[in-house]
């Protein structure tokens, strides 16, 4: 049994399995969620994760993530 990873995504607690290759990265998470990484932005524990750092940024249990995109607005 691999380690479980608990993340808070957009205010909701979710469990993920740690991949065989090592800790889950932001890029790995976006892929897992089926999101196009070019169309979203990610904040981890109230700090921006630069787009260039998605692959290197590894997630730990308890991390709070905001994943946002643009929608219609005035």
């Amino acid at each position: 049994m691999r380690d479980a990873l608990t993340l808070v995504l957009n205010g909701e607690r979710r469990q993920f399995e740690t991949p065989d290759q090592g800790p889950l990265s932001v890029l790995g998470l976006l892929t897992e969620l089926g999101l196009d990484s070019r169309k979203v932005a990610v904040e981890r524990n109230e700090e921006i994760v630069p787009r260039s750092g998605y692959a290197e940024t590894k997630l730990s249990s308890g991390d709070q993530l905001e994943i946002v995109h643009f929608i219609g607005g005035g």
Binding site: L33, V40, I67, V68, H69, F70, G72, G73
Partner: peptide, 19 residues
């Protein structure tokens, strides 16, 4: 055009996007 920034609906990741 002005646009708003909101949480992605994680239960529907393939929903059409403004872009």
């Amino acid at each position: 055009v002005t646009v708003a920034v909101r949480r992605v609906n994680l239960s529907d990741p393939k929903a059409p996007m403004l872009q």
